[in-house]
Amino acid sequence: MQLFPCPFCGPRSESEFHFGGDFGNLRPEGSDVSASEWSAYLHLRANPKGSSSEVWMHMTCGELFRMDRNTVDNTVNSSAELEDTHR
């Protein structure tokens, strides 16, 4: 079992969390968004080896937050509540 740090609740089991995608993958706005931009937003993922910034949700309390972790050794470096611009 791995513990993830919810910014509100503190350390909880990974089974209480849900992955929400890459941090910074913002929805394209405006009427002139091209098909390739939409495709990139919907389907392309960074999938980095090493340091990764991701959006996660703590399902039990509903907290949506950014978590920086290493995808190689699974260490978590930090977690922080999302600002409104990244929700």
């Binding site: 079992m1 350390p11 089974s15 209480e16 399902m59 309390c61």
Partner: peptide
Amino acid sequence: TTLSLSGSSRSAATLFAGIS
């Protein structure tokens, strides 16, 4: 649950016996 008995968590919501 997977809660630590030595401390408390700010939210009382957790998985208990696999359910919220």
